[in-house]
């Protein structure tokens, strides 16, 4: 009797294993949450120090065009105007996404609708290969091939937004393509049959049904590509010119938020204004990736096909 009682009252082996498994996964989740929160806290505290302890005006930080954190201007204010980097970052991001999107969607359509068998068999590994190439290699090719060509054609140094756009175009192309392929594959084939049975040509079906039905997810693909372009540091740093100057056209040397960070973070002393100013740039990057994420979620929710 006592034997049965103690057996029933104590947890079984299965339930002990269940608790053990749950403890492990909760611990891992807690560790990751802690990590994310501390990264956010660290970047935010460093990034905000520019405004709290160094008393830089937020507006002048976002709109100023002079970047020389080590020196003071005529009025005794530190020269930390991040506008040139913000403008350049957005320019290369938007331009590269604009250029890459038509190519990406064309390749995706080729793989899903025009040559679903051989096209996909051949292009899938090509795209995976493009993703796998390290960004320093892209940057190096940009530096040794793209920049000299631009220099020959347009004069100047060759570095600048144009070179950055070209390098980023190749880098975001596989991202946008593979997500577009997913988007188009998710369109049920009966939409295609329905359209063809109504007398639509293949092109009309693609243009009027597929692209339209896949639009929310295609937009998501583009935003993913933009997020990648916005955050890319190394390859851009190698071709952008790294002069913190307001870009006047596409071929003057300039600097993005990321390239400024990689170039200078090792040359500043923790806790000083030049260092804090760089953390402020990092904070802008962080906030922007948050915006990209929210956009993706918003579009995904609005565009989900209800059935």
């Amino acid at each position: 009797m006592d034997d049965i009682q103690s057996k029933l009252k104590s947890p079984s082996k299965a339930s002990r294993e269940d608790i053990f498994g749950r403890v492990i996964s909760y611990t891992c989740i807690a560790a990751i949450i802690l990590l994310v929160v501390s990264i956010l806290y660290f970047i935010a505290s460093r990034g905000l120090a520019t405004f709290t302890s160094n008393h830089v005006n937020l507006i002048s930080f976002l709109t100023g065009q002079e970047w020389n954190p080590g020196a003071l201007d005529a009025h005794g204010h530190p020269q930390v105007g991040a506008l040139p980097m913000i403008v350049t970052s957005f320019s290369v991001t938007v331009l590269s996404a604009l250029v890459a999107t038509p190519f990406a969607i064309a390749v995706a359509l080729f793989m899903t609708d025009i040559a679903p068998k051989n096209g996909a068999k051949f292009l899938q590994p090509v795209i995976e290969l493009l993703v796998g190439i390290p960004s320093v290699v892209y940057g190096f090719i940009g530096l040794t091939v793209v920049v000299p060509i631009i220099r020959q054609i347009f004069g100047g140094t060759g570095s600048g937004i144009l070179a950055g756009t070209i390098v980023l175009f190749v880098m975001v192309l596989p991202t946008i393509t593979s997500l577009s392929v997913d988007a188009l594959r998710s369109i049920p084939s009966y939409f295609r049959s329905a359209s063809l049975a109504l007398g639509a040509t293949r092109f009309q079906t693609i243009y009027k049904v597929l692209l339209r039905a896949a639009m929310p997810r295609l937009l998501t693909a583009v935003i993913f590509g933009m997020a990648r372009a916005f955050g890319e540091a190394l390859a851009v740093q190698m071709v952008i010119g790294n002069a913190v100057l307001m870009p006047h056209n596409l071929i003057t040397p300039t600097s993005t938020l990321t390239s400024q960070l990689t170039t200078n973070i090792g040359n500043t002393i923790m806790g000083t204004l030049p260092n804090n100013a760089l953390w402020s740039l990092a904070l802008i990057l962080l906030l922007m990736s948050l915006v990209f994420n929210l956009l993706i979620r918003y579009i995904g929710k609005r565009g989900a096909i209800k059935s």
Binding site: F191, S193, A194, A197, V209, R212
Partner: peptide, 20 residues
């Protein structure tokens, strides 16, 4: 083919209206 399918139309087993 395009003309033919306009003259001989088809309704499928699963209702398949476009998501418009």
């Amino acid at each position: 083919l395009v003309e033919l399918r306009k003259q001989i139309g088809m309704v499928f087993q699963q209702p398949n209206p476009f998501p418009f």
